[in-house]
Simulated scan of single mutants.
Amino acid sequence: MTLTRKHIWILTTIVGISGLNQGLLLPLIALLLEEKGVSSTVNGLHATGVYIGILFASLFMEAPLRKYGFRPLILGGGLTVTLCLLSFPLWDSLLFWFLLRFLIGIGDQTLHFATQTWITAYSPAGSRGKIISLYGLFFGIGFAVGPFFLPLLAIHSALPFLVSAALSLAAILTIFLLENQYPEKSGIETYTIRSTLVRFKKVLALAWAPLLPAFGYGVLEASLNSNFPVYGLRIGLEVEKISLILPAFSIGGIVFQLPLGIMSDKYGRRKVLLTVFALGTVLLWIMGMAETSFLALFFCFFLFGMLLGSAYSLSLAFMTDSIPKQFLPAGNLLSGVCFSFGSISGPLICGAFIQYFQSFSYFHFLSLFLLAIFLGLAKKPAPKPESVQK
């Protein structure tokens, strides 16, 4: 079976609303905690609750998916997020909110794992890049739209949560328009944490290179949003200019998400990924030499978003090409794990670099990081799925 237009639009719409929730929740909670006098360090650590939830859920997702199918997991994940959003206004507690963020991480991982696996498992190889890019495009648009709901705080502090929960529920209920389906069977009857880890090892042996861009994108997205504002202030940029520069990356990613996916269908995922990471490495080095110029940084951030804003969706498509279908659930879980590790480690490593290596440009450091990923992609082409012992 292949995906119909109905499948694509419903699944991408659900993912788009999920992106909106994430795009709203990050700055919303950060602002509310800042107003309460919570330190920036605690504020940043608090945000890791989502990623910890994602990593925790990754160990337990494969068995429920194979037993119950795609639709129940999407519904369960979406309802978990909705209930958590409704719960934020109930109790103003730092620990309670961290627990809710942890549960949102579990819900988001469940939803994204099921939608990603459904899309990757049933999309035809000839248009897989285009379809997965649509997935990334809708998430990116939702993530970019999310912060526009922040002014609702002026009406009531609970209103952004309530509106986000209502949109989430409305999107999730559309899943009932699709019949439930299941991933391809692997011939394994029992699924435990140990067996999941064994399949993780097999996927890594096959697709370690295709998973590198997912990790890289996690580092870039989290670091640019967390570390660049701090670095920008230290090199003399004004807050207003920083707030204009940052969205340029997201806008660039939205603009070029679909074209890069189509190009990867035509020319191959590896070639496109090598090209964008090579150009991104050069562009970051140029940014380091022109980092005090607002116009240069704004333009470069936009170009950088055009190049690397599709890294996760291209990584997903490349991974799907590189492993047998029965390993796709484990592969999709690992993609989320790699992204989460990048999102957690990126701000920590880059923050330490900014603090202890003040004579070296932050952008040059990121450039070297992208170069390392480029070399990893160039070192060894992904093996053919047919070569794997099942």
Results as ranks from 00 to 15, higher is better:
G37L: 08
L95Q: 14
R194E: 13
L237R: 01
I8K: 08
F228H: 01
T292V: 10
W208Q: 11
P229H: 08
A209H: 04
V282Q: 00
G232Y: 05
R5H: 12
G253S: 09
C300N: 08
K202S: 14
L55S: 11
V276G: 04
F60M: 14
V230A: 08
K271D: 10
H112L: 15
T4K: 12
K201C: 01
L73G: 03
I245H: 03
V163W: 07
L233G: 00
P381T: 06
F161E: 07
S226T: 15
G126T: 09
F96A: 15
V219R: 05
F357T: 00
S343K: 09
L33D: 04
K67Q: 11
S361W: 03
L152C: 09
G187H: 07
K266F: 12
V163I: 15
S343D: 06
T4G: 14
L152Q: 07
Q116H: 11
V42A: 15
G23N: 11
G376K: 04
K201I: 00
G351Y: 07
G78H: 10
P329Q: 06
G216M: 13
F56T: 15
I175C: 02
T192E: 07
P210H: 06
S315A: 14
A144V: 14
L204F: 15
I172P: 07
G261H: 09
L303R: 04
I344T: 08
S322Q: 03
T196N: 12
